[in-house]
Design a protein around this nucleic acid. Structure first.
Length: 103
DNA sequence: GGAACGGCTAAGG
DNA sequence: GCCTTAGCCGTTC
């Protein structure tokens, strides 16, 4: 309701249930832009609300956390996910177990 | 208005 | 399992 694509991303990501994660491609797909996974990343990268928008719940299509604040923040992402109940393994999570099936 | 960048994805080696 | 190449999209300078 905002207007920009990024805003929509924040909305969906903030809607992700706790203890679960989603992929960039899924978010993009959920908004009608399955090819805009990158755009989603670009949006989250500019994430003006790092707390309202649990960008740490956004992982790669393979379950890899991807990045987070540049790289040094990635470990923090793992910590956050673990704190929510998501078992992160080597910077990766079991999408088949934590990936949100539907937003 | 145009160019460059980025937290991607899929496929191949 | 990891790295490379090619394609797509939106934001930002």
């Amino acid at each position: 309701v905002s207007g920009t694509f990024a805003d929509r991303v924040y909305e969906l990501v903030s809607r992700v249930p706790e203890g679960k994660v989603t992929t960039y491609g899924d978010i993009a797909k959920a908004m009608g832009r399955p090819r805009a996974a990158r755009a989603v990343g670009a949006a989250l990268r500019a994430n003006p609300h790092p707390i309202v928008v649990p960008c740490h719940r956004a992982v790669m299509a393979d379950g890899k956390l991807g990045g987070y604040g540049g790289g040094s923040g990635t470990p923090k992402k793992v910590k956050l996910l673990r704190g929510e109940g998501v078992a992160v393994k080597d910077g990766r999570v079991d999408l088949s177990k934590y990936r949100v099936r539907k937003l």
